[in-house]
């Protein structure tokens, strides 16, 4: 088992190295660089070119990348040309907000998806089942940033109950978290339903019923517990996606997280910050996915058995 964990962690290193190269390469393709971002119209094109030559911006991609990685290994990801602060420091000052949003988002998603998924599975092929499936489909079919805008119109502008942007008070997280959560719930309802259906048909549940245990205990105690593994795995994956993918929701609610930091960096052509954000975000979501795989392996006896000897 230790070998499996060790192998998974080791595998992350080459993947992250390759990811960082791909990111560096794609960002390099985009027009505009730090020099443009910092000096804009202050310097003439010739002066900017001279500066680029001097700072090594015209060196081959591989050399620049090697230089970047060399600095990264010492914990230096460069300085943002817009904020004039180290990229690492900027990123980690915004990270808690993103983590906070992702956490509450998945809580909302589970609160919606688990009850609906169970009801759908228990009442399979009835009206309730179809209704919750249609609800899930609707949730999957709407762009979540649009849903966020609708929530703002209703709860902030019309009713005036909740703040529509920023992160000033504890109520600020509600609307963005519901926006993220509803989108994820749509996918999790399906997982919950199919996972419950699989368990409900097992022989051991028939045995439990035959022993005269009441139906509520059968469903919530025996069935749900066994159906939970795929649900938690799916939720973990969703959490990983939320860490990197809440860019749009963060931008709708002006949520001060890393997603908004990234998109602002794109808009100001702050190349160093863009590369840093992309590498760090990918690293965090990969680490999360890896943890889920490892936890899954510990929970699922079949995977555990494969690596025992």
């Amino acid at each position: 088992m230790h070998r499996y964990v060790f192998k998974r962690i080791l595998l992350l290193i080459p993947i992250m190295l390759a990811v960082s190269f791909v990111v560096y390469f794609i960002v390099d393709l985009a027009p505009g660089d730090d020099i443009d971002a910092i000096y804009g119209n202050e310097l003439t094109a010739e002066q900017k070119d001279e500066l680029r030559e001097e700072l090594g911006y015209n060196d081959p991609l591989v050399i620049r990348y090697a230089r970047y990685m060399g600095k990264l290994l010492t914990g230096d990801m460069g300085t943002s040309s817009f904020y004039h602060e180290p990229v690492m420091k900027l990123y980690f000052s915004k990270f808690p907000a993103t983590l906070n949003l992702a956490f509450w988002g998945i809580i909302v998603a589970l609160l919606i998806a688990i009850p609906l998924g169970i009801i759908a599975a228990v009442h399979q092929n009835t009206l309730i089942d179809s209704a919750s499936m249609i609800l899930g489909l609707l949730g999957m079919s709407m762009p979540n940033f649009w849903f966020g805008l609708m929530l703002i119109i209703l709860f902030s502008l019309t009713l005036g109950w909740l703040p529509s942007f920023g992160n000033e008070s504890w109520t600020s997280v509600i609307l963005p978290a519901v926006t993220v959560g509803v989108g994820q719930a749509a996918l999790l309802i399906r997982t919950t339903r199919s996972s419950m259906l699989e368990v409900i048909r097992q022989d051991y549940l028939r045995t439990v019923r035959a022993k005269g245990v009441n139906e509520r205990t059968v469903i919530y105690h025996h069935a749900l517990r066994n159906a939970l593994i795929p649900i938690i795995t799916a939720a973990g994956t969703q959490l990983g996606i939320a860490l990197g993918g809440s860019v749009v929701v963060e931008s709708v609610f002006a949520w001060p997280g890393v997603g908004k930091l990234t998109i602002d960096a794109f808009n100001t052509r702050d190349t160093t910050l863009v590369v840093g954000c992309l590498i760090l975000t990918t690293a965090f979501s990969s680490i999360l996915m890896m943890l889920i795989d490892i936890i899954y392996a510990f929970v699922d006896p079949r995977i555990k058995a494969r690596y025992m000897n």
Partner: peptide, 18 residues
């Protein structure tokens, strides 16, 4: 395996802006 861990929205933003 190298492309898929990059969050898809971010990857798309990269390519679109490139």
């Amino acid at each position: 395996d190298i492309i898929s861990p990059i969050p898809s929205v971010l990857l798309a933003i990269c390519i679109a802006s490139a």
